[in-house]
Design a protein around this nucleic acid. Sequence first.
DNA 1: GTAATTTATGTCAGCCGCTGACAGATGACA
DNA 2: TGTCATCTGTCAGCGGCTGACATAAATTAC
Lengths: 218, 218
Amino acid sequence: MNQPGLRERKKRKTRLALIDAALDLFAAQGYEATTVDQIAAAVDVSPRTFFRYFATKEDVALSSPVDGQEVMLRELAARPAEEPPFVALGHAMRAVVTALQEGDLTETARFLKTRELVESTPALFAGSIRRMMENERRLIAEIARRESTSPDDLLPHFAVSLFTAVARVGFESCHPRSPQDLPAFGERLEQILALAERSLRPGWDRPRSGADAARPGG
Amino acid sequence: MNQPGLRERKKRKTRLALIDAALDLFAAQGYEATTVDQIAAAVDVSPRTFFRYFATKEDVALSSPVDGQEVMLRELAARPAEEPPFVALGHAMRAVVTALQEGDLTETARFLKTRELVESTPALFAGSIRRMMENERRLIAEIARRESTSPDDLLPHFAVSLFTAVARVGFESCHPRSPQDLPAFGERLEQILALAERSLRPGWDRPRSGADAARPGG
DNA sequence: GTAATTTATGTCAGCCGCTGACAGATGACA
DNA sequence: TGTCATCTGTCAGCGGCTGACATAAATTAC
């Protein structure tokens, strides 16, 4: 049993406790109105300790979607190389949604709570977008790797950028609140992916003739 | 001569002085390392007064691009109704770039300084994106109006979202530093717009059969 | 099982962004 | 010139966040 030591388990526990306490307080009285002191007090921990687990108050609120992005990237890397970029991205996203539907209930609940919070809190919305964009860079790199082109090629940028656009429209036009809403959300995503596919020329996301190369900082 | 009074002129002057002092300090020592007190001191104004001109430190840094978004929206509203959404958006953006090239030099300089700052400061980058997205809503509304569909229709969302994707790729792949770089930047934008057009089916951004309607909050 | 070492936590002091309240200065207007 | 509206400075204070130091707890070595 390669079980982590007591210390590790304890840390894991307080971390989750802090997240859940924070999410509950945020939902009850709003993100801005909740102080870090309150969160720390709810878990019986000193405020200073809170900042040893999370760099910022924003971090504790957005810790959950980060995991989703990790899943997404892993799934993308696992897609067969023959799939065109946009198709592979679509499948990776589907995998995230199914993981959400079939995964741990408490974790799914955290994810949904966070989504609601992000929607209703501009500051968190900005932070969420920022993380999404940092993740974009990794997606671009992965697509470039798959297609054996440079990450500075315009095509991976465009493909990923267009994909995030689709994902964003999905979240803007459908707001899942409970696990039961997830199937409908999945369907909505399919609808938008279909719209995108219908709007695009077949083969658009495959490199051609190397004409669109771009150097960074140009 | 409907000239504004002395009071108004003074306010305008301190406002610009604060922006320029802030931009210079940010460039010299970084955004985070610069305190509001320093900015206020540089303009010989109390820190409290600073916050009467700008709600946050972020605001003083991002005041310039906001104007660009206003121009963009105005230009879009002025485009002829026959133009399909994506074409109209493209022309509106071109208008912004030319306005930047032909407009007031000091203002263009502010814009470019801000761009550089935003690129190198994650916090500002997030804020910049957030403003961009708030603006997206207005663009969507305008497109919906032009096309006589509901703002809840998926199509305006998709069109605008895809357009912002293009704009973002433009800024990511070309970093204009001085007014002389603007022509090259314009060309880069054309290149990406061409790539987008080449990737999309003709007529994709025009509503068809009313099949893609979506209700909000579904 | 105890001692030595590492690591997590609490306490304290303090900076910085930001705000409300009040008082004094300054431009607007009759 | 005097009244009024508005802008500005001062002060006190909250909340996010950090460094430094001491203490407590878990891990490791003996």
